[in-house]
């Protein structure tokens, strides 16, 4: 219980740090921290399989991807002031969180664990269709990225000159 509260506080804190970070690399690392605390929470919840996936893919692979992208795109300093006023952002976020959160107050607790098939059975057999679609999704993503990253001989603007 206390652990759950602590983990969630950590996750929110790390998330806010990622949003406030002045360097992209820092933001990506804070994201990995969010991922890690979520993974621990999942493990605590009795979901070790997804916790492993979250750690390896969410905290691992995605972070590597970010590092790659940041290396290519360059770690721009971000000192430009935000477009939205701070109070408006907070108001909107708190309202949205309030709407969803207020509904959760009455979460049912039917945790009388029903006799359920093992994770492997559920994942590979009961939700087999989802896996097929995932493959399609990955295929589409790969194709698209291939197309996006095709090099053309159009001139690349140097990092210094910005679009007016």
């Amino acid at each position: 219980m206390a652990l759950a509260v602590g983990l969630m506080t950590t996750a929110v804190f790390c998330g806010l740090q990622a949003m406030r970070a002045k360097r992209l690399l820092t933001a990506a690392l804070w994201l990995a921290a969010v991922s890690a605390s979520v993974a621990i929470a999942l493990y605590q919840l009795g979901a070790p399989d997804v916790a492993v996936v979250e750690l390896s893919v969410g905290a691992g692979l995605v972070t590597i991807l970010f590092v790659f992208a940041i290396t290519i795109a360059g770690d721009e300093a971000m000192d430009a002031p935000p477009i939205m006023p701070k109070w408006a952002s907070w108001l909107l976020v708190l309202l949205a969180v309030g709407v969803v959160g207020s509904a959760i107050q009455a979460t049912p607790t039917s945790s009388a664990a029903a006799a359920e098939a093992s994770f492997t059975a559920v994942f590979w057999q009961e939700r087999g269709l989802d896996i097929l679609i995932q493959i399609g999704l990955i295929f589409a993503g790969v194709l698209g990225v291939l197309n996006l990253l095709t090099e053309e001989d159009t001139p690349t603007p140097s990092p210094k000159d910005k679009v007016p």
Binding site: P82, I83, M84, A88, S89, L92, V93, L95, A96, V99
Partner: peptide, 18 residues
């Protein structure tokens, strides 16, 4: 045309629909 405002539109929409 500002992305941030567009996201704000989504949140406002959520509130209105709710």
């Amino acid at each position: 045309g500002q992305l941030n405002w567009n996201v704000a539109g989504i949140i406002v929409g959520l509130l209105l629909i709710w």
